[in-house]
Structures are given as structure tokens and as C-alpha cells.
Design a protein around this nucleic acid. Structure first.
Length: 293
DNA sequence: AATCCATGCAACCGCATGTTT
DNA sequence: AAAACATGCGGTTGCATGGAT
């Protein structure tokens, strides 16, 4: 990385506040001509003839001018995805945004702070940031209008019933534990939620039945059930160790039989309460990046 | 018509982290 | 190893807008 002589004094002279259409044009023109790798952001600012600091240019490009951005309101599918991912990742907006093609971390953060927080506040639901995993009687968010526990439980069964193929957490199919908004990607409305998903993807790929999704998610992704949302008394019968391993080792890009490690001390045929299963899962989190521990 | 208030969103700020010298 | 700088992230702020009074 080349150093730059961007002094404090220079930064003070930089313009702040809203971007004018002219400034947008300049930045777009430069970025289309040079690409995001055409230099460091302070160079972008200079070369594009903008009196903005590099940081401001970067933000404007990433959050507003990028051609692959999807504007407009969040569809129910996206809302559910955000909700679900937030329950797993917390306020890791950039990580959440990585699962929503065409959406920015800022957009999602704003959405969360305005819409979802309000909805949760209006309901009597407990705070999302203070899950009480041991309280089996609670049904968080039950009355928040965001999802029903029954739906959630049904969806969880998708993960844990060997009869169904295990779905990675961020597959678009598996992230619909809420509402009646089962995804029907044949519907134009729902399909529009997937702008940014490569056109070549098949329905299966969009629904997560393909390693393309896993590849797309990156190596850091893994299935981490949102503890606060679970019916901890549900029973899981481990009938298919392959799926159980796959479930627990989604972070492993190469989910082949040789590479699979088991997580916890479960064996085929074991019957676990979900509560126990989660304990098992959380006991062995050595594969998780430190940020998740 | 004027004012107040709530809301949504764009942008800034400070900090952490990574890279280069 | 330390300093300087760039980048990225999350929290926060402030402005624009629209609805209510």
C-alpha cells in the first residue's frame, strides 16, 4: 500500500454533508473508468476531482452509487433473513449484509434500528440481545408479528430431520422460519428478492441445495442455531450421522465424508433433546472463528 | 399556514485492524 | 519494532420529509 500525504489540514478543507448530483457523477465516472482497485480512496478523491475525503468517497460508492445495489424496501424474505442472521451474528451488519445481495450494512443497520427494533419493542418480546436459552417456556417474538413459533419449529425440523436434506443457515429456503412467507421463487415478487443472485443459479441453488451457496457464503459460515428462538424441549433423533456432521460442520467447504468431523459426542441412533443437542454443539466450537465464541 | 413531532436515511465519527515503510 | 497510513466497521448524528395538530 502506498502512503499518502493526507494531512489533517487537508482533511479539514474537505467538503462534508450531502453529496450533490455533480459529485455523484464525478465519482461514478471515475469508478466506472478505474474500478474499485484503481487506487486507494484518497487517490480516488483527488483523481476524480472531488473535495471529499477518501472515506467519504468510499462510503458514497459502497452505500449508494455501486451499480449492483438493490434499492427499495426490504421484502419479507429479506426481513426474515435479517432477523434470523441477527439472532446468530448480533450487530455484525457487514456479515449480515454479505448474505443479502445488493444490500449494504448501513441499509440493514438502519432497517434494524427503525423497523425491527420497533416491532420488538411494541411486542412484549424479550430483548433479542439477552436470550435466555434455558427458559423453555418462553416463545420469544411470538407476538411480535415477525414469525410464529410453530413455523419456526417446523423449519427447525428441516435442519434436524434426516429425511430432509440439511440446509445451511443462510440458504434462502432455510431462513424462512417466520410468517407465512414460505419462499416461492417462482413468484415474481419473491424472485425479485434475489436480485444479485447469479442468473445462472437454479432453483435448487437458490434454495440452498447446492454447494454453490456454501461457496458463496465463505468459509466463516456455520450453522449456529439461534438459541433464544428454540423450543428447547424438542427431540432430535440422530438417525443419519452424515447429515448431523454436515449440520455441524457447515463451515467446512469440503463437506465430503473424509473431511467430516463429528461435533460433540453424538452417535447414530442417539436421541437428544434439542437442548442437549445445542449443548453438544456449543461444547465443541473449536471450528468457530474467535468472534463467535 | 405554521408548528411540532416522528421517522427514515445518508453521512460522519471514532476506533480497530491491516499493511507498508 | 514502531510509526504512518488506509480501510472497514459499528454507533451515532443530523437533515429531509410527511403527517398530525
Amino acid at each position: 500500500m502506498m502512503r499518502n500525504s493526507t494531512s489533517e489540514e487537508e482533511n479539514k478543507k474537505m467538503k462534508k454533508g450531502l453529496w450533490s448530483p455533480e459529485e455523484d457523477e464525478k465519482l461514478k465516472e471515475y469508478m466506472f473508468g478505474n474500478g474499485e482497485n484503481g487506487g486507494c480512496w484518497s487517490d480516488v478523491s483527488k483523481n476524480a476531482g472531488l473535495k471529499r475525503c477518501g472515506k467519504s468517497c468510499r462510503l458514497r460508492w459502497i452505500n449508494y452509487l455501486r451499480p449492483d445495489l438493490k434499492r427499495g424496501p426490504f421484502c419479507p424474505v429479506e426481513e426474515n433473513l435479517i432477523f434470523h442472521l441477527h439472532s446468530v451474528l448480533g450487530n455484525k451488519w457487514s456479515k449480515i449484509a454479505a448474505h443479502l445481495p445488493g444490500r449494504t450494512d448501513n441499509e440493514i443497520k438502519n432497517f434494524w434500528n427503525s423497523k425491527i427494533k420497533k416491532r420488538l419493542k411494541n411486542s412484549s418480546a424479550p430483548s433479542i440481545t439477552s436470550p435466555n436459552a434455558s427458559d423453555s417456556s418462553s416463545e420469544p417474538y411470538k407476538d411480535s408479528g415477525i414469525f410464529s413459533m410453530q413455523d419456526y419449529t417446523n423449519t427447525m425440523s428441516m435442519y434436524i430431520e434426516p429425511s430432509s436434506s440439511m440446509q445451511p443457515i443462510a440458504s434462502y429456503h432455510s431462513v424462512l422460519p417466520f410468517d407465512d412467507n414460505r419462499v416461492n421463487i417462482n413468484s415474481e415478487d419473491q424472485r425479485s428478492c434475489f436480485q444479485g443472485v447469479p442468473n445462472c443459479w437454479t432453483e435448487n441453488e437458490m434454495l440452498g441445495n447446492n454447494e454453490v451457496i456454501g461457496e458463496n457464503l465463505g468459509v466463516e459460515e456455520q450453522f449456529v442455531p439461534p438459541l433464544e428462538n428454540m423450543n428447547m424441549k424438542s427431540n432430535i433423533k440422530i438417525q443419519n450421522m452424515e447429515n448431523y456432521s454436515l449440520f455441524n460442520n457447515f463451515n467446512n467447504r469440503n463437506n465430503n465424508a473424509e473431511n467430516m468431523q463429528t461435533c460433540g459426542k453424538c452417535e447414530e441412533g442417539d436421541e437428544l433433546r434439542l437442548e442437549e443437542w445445542v449443548e453438544e454443539l456449543m461444547r465443541d466450537v473449536s471450528f468457530l472463528p474467535s468472534t463467535y465464541k
